[in-house]
């Protein structure tokens, strides 16, 4: 089991869009390694002959008819938004500086 370095933890936090401070990194990185060490035991337990299960109760073909159901009103949709304008969700600028 490879140890996660601080930089790797920072990279994971980047992927997950969490702005971890240095102090948080110091605190979390060793805990993550303890957890990963504990789960590493499953490596190699099940071979190629074992199928993966993603749902405990196997089902297929669960569909709905192509029928319109009532939507929310814009007031309902936008009620909890941090910022709105013209019945749209207002979000900070999407790209960083060019």
């Amino acid at each position: 089991m490879p140890e996660l370095s601080r930089d790797e933890v920072r990279h994971l936090a980047d992927l997950a869009r969490i702005d971890l401070s240095d102090a948080e990194l110091d605190h979390l990185a060793p805990q993550l390694n303890v957890i990963l060490e504990a789960v590493a035991s499953i490596q190699g337990v099940a071979g190629d002959d074992v199928a993966a299960t993603s749902h405990p109760i196997p089902m297929t073909n669960v569909f709905r008819e192509d029928v319109i159901r009532p939507s929310l009103t814009p007031a309902q949709a936008l009620a909890m938004a941090p910022a709105t304008e013209d019945d749209k969700f207002s979000v900070p600028r999407i790209l960083g500086e060019e």
């Binding site: 499953i42 199928a51 993966a52 299960t53």
Partner: peptide, 9 residues
């Protein structure tokens, strides 16, 4: 992937 196989077992 491995964890989902354990699930099968």
């Amino acid at each position: 992937g491995q964890a989902q196989k354990i699930r099968t077992l």
